[in-house]
Simulated assay, not measured.
Amino acid sequence: MTPEELAEYLGVSMYCVYSWSSRGGGPKVIHVGGRLRYRPDDVEEWLDAVTDDRGGG
């Protein structure tokens, strides 16, 4: 997925996505032909790792 698609999917700004790619802290990023891309499985894995399970349900 593109950075724009990731931002829309997560409901965050493009600034946030680009900050993650330069400083770390977000989903694993890959470079394809000089462009940033995110594998959906990597995004879901990252979400699982940062999800707060204490909310109950």
Rank of each mutant, 00 (worst) to 15 (best):
I30E: 13
R54H: 04
M14F: 00
V43K: 05
V43I: 15
S22K: 15
Y38A: 05
M1V: 09
D48K: 15
R35K: 12
R35C: 00
K28P: 01
P40I: 03
V50F: 07
I30Y: 06
Y18F: 13
Y38Q: 05
D41L: 07
R37L: 03
G57N: 12
G56E: 11
P27N: 12
G55Q: 13
E5K: 05
P3Q: 06
Y15H: 06
L10F: 08
R54D: 13
G33R: 11
R39A: 09
Y18R: 14
M14N: 05
L10S: 06
V32T: 03
W20T: 01
E5M: 12
G33W: 01
L6E: 08
Y9D: 09
I30A: 13
E8C: 06
Y9S: 13
L10V: 09
G56I: 09
M1Q: 01
L6S: 10
S19G: 13
W20Q: 04
R39N: 08
T2N: 13
Y18H: 12
Y15C: 04
R23D: 03
D42N: 01
Y38G: 02
E44T: 05
I30M: 09
H31I: 11
Y15Q: 14
D41W: 00
E8F: 08
D42Y: 00
T2I: 03
Y18W: 13
G55D: 13
D52L: 13
V29M: 11
A7C: 08
R35V: 07
M1T: 08
Y15E: 14
L36N: 08
D52T: 11
V17S: 10
C16I: 00
A7R: 02
P40F: 01
R37S: 05
W46F: 02
R37M: 11
R23G: 08
P3Y: 03
T2V: 01
R35T: 07
S21A: 14
P27G: 07
V32R: 12
E8N: 12
G55N: 10
G55C: 11
T2W: 00
A7Y: 08
V32N: 02
R37V: 03
D48C: 06
R23V: 01
A7T: 01
M1C: 02
G24C: 09
W20N: 04
G11A: 10
